Deep mutational scan, measured.
Amino acid sequence: MDETGKELVLALYDYQEKSPREVTMKKGDILTLLNSTNKDSWKVEVKITVNGKTYERQGFVPAAYVKKL
């Protein structure tokens, strides 16, 4: 869990989004878990840094590609 009590997951593999509802992640990324009720895909939040500014983006990733921490 992070400092706000949200559950975290670790990306086990790289994943490139295939639709606007998904998010891209790299192996080793730590993501905030938002919903894990679907056995196939979990909703997560990723933090992306562009030019020194951090943005948050929500979307789905394959459940088999992440592990709860």
Rank of each mutant, 00 (worst) to 15 (best):
Y15V: 00
K43I: 14
K27H: 05
E56L: 15
E45S: 15
L69T: 03
T24E: 03
K39L: 09
Y15E: 01
P20N: 09
G28N: 04
P20Y: 07
Y13Q: 12
E45P: 00
M25P: 01
D2C: 15
E45W: 05
I30H: 02
K47D: 02
D2H: 15
K68F: 09
L10Q: 09
N51S: 08
D14C: 07
G59W: 06
I48Y: 13
L34V: 10
D40V: 11
K47N: 08
N38D: 14
N38V: 05
I30Q: 02
E17Q: 12
N35G: 05
L34P: 00
T37W: 07
D14K: 02
V50H: 09
T4Q: 13
T24A: 05
E17Y: 04
Q16E: 14
D2R: 13
L8Y: 15
P20K: 09
N35H: 06
M1V: 12
V50L: 11
T54V: 14
D14T: 05
K6F: 11
K53R: 12
V50M: 11
K27M: 06
N51R: 07
L33Q: 01
Q58M: 07
N35M: 07
V61H: 01
S41I: 14
Y55G: 05
W42G: 00
L33Y: 01
E22D: 06
W42F: 05
D2G: 14
V66E: 01
T54N: 08
V50T: 08
E17V: 05
T32H: 08
N38F: 07
S36E: 12
K53L: 13
E3C: 15
M25S: 02
S36Q: 09
E22F: 05
A63V: 06
K6M: 11
V46W: 06
G5N: 11
A64M: 11
D2Q: 14
T49Q: 10
V61C: 04
Q58V: 12
I48N: 05
T54Y: 08
D40H: 13
T37F: 09
G28L: 03
K27T: 05
N51V: 03
T32G: 05
E3S: 14
M1G: 13
A63F: 03
T49W: 09
L34W: 02
Y13S: 08
K67T: 12
W42V: 04
D2A: 13
P62N: 05
K67C: 15
E7D: 09
M1S: 12
P62D: 05
V44N: 00
N51D: 13
K67Q: 13
T37D: 15
A64V: 10
P62R: 04
M25F: 12
L8T: 07
L12E: 02
M1L: 12
